[in-house]
Design a protein around this nucleic acid. Structure first.
Length: 590
RNA sequence: GGGGUCGUAGUUCAGUUUGGUUAGAACGCCGGCCUGUCACGCCGGAGGUCGCGAGUUCGAGUCUCGUCGGCCCCGCCA
């Protein structure tokens, strides 16, 4: 760069700077060579400035500019000039001016980029990840990274102003049963032993409460060795927090305040607080899922009682076996074609539904449907009544075991909303889902497992059920749901050893195993653990919504592919045999 | 572990249904011309193991099987 020193960024200059000598540094976005005058759009993180090379002004510099190519790195010194009349570019922040270059330094050349940095062009994910540093030059991606910075800054500011301490917790930690598969790290110093990377800092943040930190938070990487999705990476970031001497309402308050600040800073949006609340049971009942998207209707309606004694054997048998019959009334959709319906039937099939019954409501409530003949006039009228069916409506039915009915119709509801364009992207519907069950039965393992995690406190009024009917115990867990996406979850924790042991027992964890795996926590609970609780937010998912992207990969600087690999570094890779033997590992796959 | 979909020039894609001469387009790239463009324009040019491997066939980008990779989903995971 010689003696050149950058004086401005590429979005700084305006008509007010006309006449000034400035020095800009950046990348060549585009070159427009007119044989005579040459225009270069110079780009940096902040913006774009047009710089001009005129042969009548600086003949040698102009000649040098002839060689410039896309993505070369330049330093240019020159005078800010107002553009001639009618030559202003309203699409550029710096469009009023241009820099007439008197001195050009080529700081670096560049090969032709492996893909165009044009925002409009779709480029395959593999290429984008292999050359991620090029991908991140694209203004849209750069904006996401900048938004991510602004988001974490806003979160830190808010929590700092509310008496929270940011405390780091170990990345090399102990493998614990329950939950997701661990990433393991072999210990060289301790033959045959392994660290695990944390699935979350759950136990450490509880210990920080025992240590009297009172209000902790951390923006922290978490690791789960499970299969990937558009919204799931093996390493992801949580906004993790824990508070002492609090109840649910205190958590809701802090979390709502933090979200309000976050959305104000990143999107300029004022959120309505407090957020709506809904129990788990109500969410399942009305939406079939514990993370309902409440931006549109199409709610699930139960017909189980209505059809209990009906003439249609399929429905009757399902109800007799403890199943459900639920329905969605797709208003004014009776025009759906047979192909549409086959299509939707296939769609719900992947969620386990063995069929999708449908009814088109015609004049005077008449049913056009393959199943119409199985019902009496009265039964059809009863069902139409419950569903508030009107001429032109399309009714869908699924009858099966509750889990299948709810999932199939929940997914059908979302698919219908997409097809009917009912989803308003400008709306941010936050809700708290509360009163989750504490335990669910795992048919493979033949025992109960924790719905949230094993440290979640049961509701006091349900404590008696822990021995008699554990599946019916409700917990003090809560999720924050935004537009159908679970963006955070937490609970009030157990802070007394006796209750914690009891829950471990309900989970089928013996006293010995509890001591071996969680002894340190149980000990801490006996040394003055305060009542406490907390919540953790998925920062990547939040940003995906804030940045209006379809994948969390777009808000992570260096994400992994669906196979959990990194095309840029080629990780994971094989290692030297010596490294393995040092770690007391003997491969048997060769 | 399973289902779907894609893989052709540097990039994005057409061509695959119905196998048949030299595999096309746009953008990009290279060269030339051009003093007011901003997705500059005009003229010319180069550029392809059709992901990889087997098979069917006189002949495969096109059909079959396998395999690798990207993406989406189920299971899994909060």
């Amino acid at each position: 760069m010689g003696e050149l020193k950058r004086s401005h960024f590429c979005n700084d200059l305006s008509a007010e700077n006309v006449g000034e000598e400035v020095t800009l540094m950046g990348w060549v976005l585009r070159r427009r060579d007119h044989g005579g005058v040459i225009f270069i759009d110079l780009r940096d993180r902040w913006g774009i400035t047009q710089v001009v090379f005129n042969p009548e002004v600086e003949k040698e510099v102009h000649a040098k500019a002839h060689d410039l190519r896309s993505e070369w790195v330049l330093a240019v010194k020159g005078r800010v000039e107002r553009r001639p009349d009618d030559m202003e570019n309203p699409n550029l922040k710096t469009g009023e001016i241009e820099v007439l270059v008197s001195e050009l330094r080529i700081l670096n050349t560049s090969q032709t980029p492996p893909f165009p940095l044009d925002e409009e062009m779709e480029v395959s994910d593999n290429l984008r990840l292999k050359y991620r540093y090029m991908d991140l030059r694209r203004p849209g991606m750069a904006a996401n990274i900048i938004t991510r910075h602004n988001a974490t800054k806003a979160i830190r500011d808010y929590l700092n102003n509310n008496n929270f301490l940011e405390v780091e917790t170990p990345i090399l930690t102990k493998s614990t049963p329950e939950g997701a598969r661990d990433y393991l790290v072999p210990s060289r110093v301790n033959a045959g032993r392994f660290f695990a990377l944390p699935q979350s800092p759950q136990l450490f943040k509880q210990l920080l409460m025992v240590s009297g930190m009172d209000r902790y938070f951390q923006i922290v990487r978490c690791f789960r060795d499970e299969d990937l999705r558009a919204d799931r990476q093996p390493e992801f970031t949580q906004v993790d927090m824990e508070l002492s001497f609090i109840g649910e309402d205190d958590i809701y308050n802090v979390a709502e305040g933090m979200m309000s600040h976050l959305f104000k800073v990143t999107r300029g949006i004022d959120l309505d607080t407090p957020f709506a609340r809904m129990t788990y049971d109500e969410a399942i009942d009305r939406f079939g899922t514990d993370r309902p998207d409440t931006r549109f209707g199409l709610e699930l309606i139960s017909l189980t009682d209505t059809v209990r004694n009906c003439g249609f054997q399929v429905f009757r048998t399902v109800v007799e076996k403890g199943g459900l019959v639920k329905s969605i009334n797709a208003k004014k959709c009776a025009h759906f074609s047979r192909k549409d319906l086959d299509n939707l039937t296939e769609y719900v099939g992947q969620f386990g539904a063995k069929g999708l019954a449908w009814v088109k409501v015609k004049e005077e409530g008449e049913w056009q449907s393959p199943i119409a003949k199985f019902f009496t006039d009265e039964e059809r009228a009863d069902m139409s009544g419950v569903l508030q069916a009107e001429e032109g409506d399309l009714l869908f039915f699924v009858a099966d075991q509750p889990a299948i009915v709810n999932q199939a119709l929940a997914e059908l509801r979302l698919e219908l909303a997409r097809r009917l364009s009912l989803v308003n992207k400008e709306v941010f519907n936050f809700i708290w889902v509360t009163d989750f069950p504490l335990l669910e039965y795992d048919h493979d393992e033949k025992r109960h497992t924790a719905v949230h995690h094993p440290f979640t406190a049961p509701k006091e009024e349900d404590l008696g059920l822990l021995d008699t009917d554990p599946g019916q115990v409700r917990s003090r867990a809560y999720d924050m749901v935004l537009n159908g996406s679970e963006i955070g979850g937490g609970s009030i924790r157990i802070h007394q050893k006796q209750l914690q042991s009891k829950v471990f027992n309900a989970l089928g964890i013996s006293n010995e195993e509890a001591d071996e795996k969680f002894g340190f926590l149980l000990q801490a609970l006996e040394l003055g653990a305060p009542p406490h609780g907390g919540i953790a937010f998925g920062l990547d998912r939040l940003l995906m919504i804030i940045c209006e992207r379809e994948s969390i990969r777009d808000v992570i600087a260096f994400p992994k592919t669906q196979k959990a690999t990194c095309p840029l570094t080629d990780a994971p890779s094989s290692v030297a045999r010596k490294q393995l033997t040092e770690l007391y590992l003997r491969p048997d796959w060769e």
